[in-house]
């Protein structure tokens, strides 16, 4: 009951943002929602199944290029986003079947390197993708304010759908099975769980919304290039967000995304040339001092310690 009330409150607040604030805040809020989509998506494979995936950048970049190419060739914007999501999902299914038999570091590396390969492929396919020159996406014919709100609400819907799917999965056999796989994959298999299908499904779920968000991003900023959308940091950010709030929890990723964006914005403003370094320090701090997440800190105990 209490959590439902809080959830309702947050949703109302998010719906009020475009009415009561300026375009800068709306842009930040859109960004935050996109980050929360990253984090919730990563949570399927990283949090629920416990596989250290660094594939977010691949899914995002692939979705961005798929969506952008659709739009350039006259496909309507919203449809282009759906296609972006689907392309990433299909890619993840095939990739998942190929690399999800790897464990630990090997899986992490394989998932990490895929983004590099995709970047190079898109860089080389100059005829279709514009290569390193990037790709311009047609600008919407509407006012700046209206555009900002349209994109905000679209992202809001994407995030809501991602949250709904996360909630649905975690209460079903799929989520339950993934939890088993995380704890002991061999035993999960012997309990009757088709581990290959379960893991691949989780991987695909983590791709579909990230890919959609990628296509969204392309329409939103009107220009993408391989360096930008396959940026390695995109793979790391959702992990940090989830780590901040403890892996596995349902709303954790959303709160983590908000917190992360806040810190990132703070760092961006104050350390223009050194923001990546500060981001790094943040990660180090988190991992060393709060490995189970900010939410797990007993604040009363912590305050007592500080006061004394």
């Amino acid at each position: 009951m209490k959590t439902k009330l809080v959830g309702l409150f947050v949703i109302v607040l998010l719906l009020l943002i475009p009415i009561i604030s300026n375009n800068y805040v709306i842009r930040l809020a859109t960004m935050m929602l996109m980050y929360s989509v990253f984090a919730m998506s990563w949570n399927f494979i990283g949090g629920m199944a416990g596989y250290p995936s660094f594939a977010t950048a691949s899914f995002f970049g692939l979705g961005a290029y798929a969506g952008a190419l659709c739009q350039v060739n006259g496909v309507p914007m919203f449809l282009a986003w759906v296609i972006g999501g689907l392309v990433s999902a299909v890619f993840a299914w095939v990739l998942g079947l190929a690399i999800l038999h790897l464990k630990g570091h090997y899986f992490a590396i394989a998932s990490l390197i895929v983004a590099e390969v995709l970047r190079e492929v898109i860089n080389s396919a100059t005829g279709i993708t514009g290569g390193g020159m990037g790709l311009n996406i047609p600008v919407l014919r509407m006012g700046v304010d209206a555009q900002a709100r349209l994109f905000y609400f679209s992202m809001f819907v994407i995030a809501l759908v991602t949250l709904a799917v996360s909630a649905y999965v975690s209460g079903r056999p799929l989520g339950f099975g993934l939890k088993c796989i995380k704890q002991n994959e061999d035993a999960a298999g012997m309990t009757g769980i088709n581990t290959t299908i379960y893991k691949t499904t989780a991987f695909t779920l983590s791709a579909v919304f990230t890919g959609g968000a990628g296509a969204f991003y392309a329409s939103w900023v009107n220009y993408i290039d391989p360096e930008d959308v396959f940026e390695i940091l995109i793979s790391i950010k959702p992990i940090v967000m989830v780590l901040m709030c403890g892996a596995g929890a349902l709303v954790g990723p959303v709160i983590g995304a908000g917190l992360f964006l806040f810190l990132e914005e703070l760092v961006w403003r104050n350390f223009l040339t050194f923001h990546v370094g500060m981001l790094g320090l943040m990660v180090v701090f988190l991992v060393i001092f709060l490995p189970t997440g900010l939410l797990s800190v007993d604040y009363r105990k912590f305050l007592k310690k500080v006061v004394r």
């Binding site: 209460g171 079903r172 056999p173 339950f176 099975g177 939890k179 088993c180 704890q183 002991n184 035993a187 999960a188 309990t191 009757g192 769980i193």
Partner: peptide, 24 residues
């Protein structure tokens, strides 16, 4: 097998996936 899950969840895993109890 599943140390961090509750006792009942451990057993439920067996019931759910092998014999096909339809819901959790």
């Amino acid at each position: 097998p599943f140390p961090e899950m509750t006792v009942v969840d451990n057993v439920a895993a067996g019931a759910l996936f092998a014999t096909g109890a339809s819901t959790l």
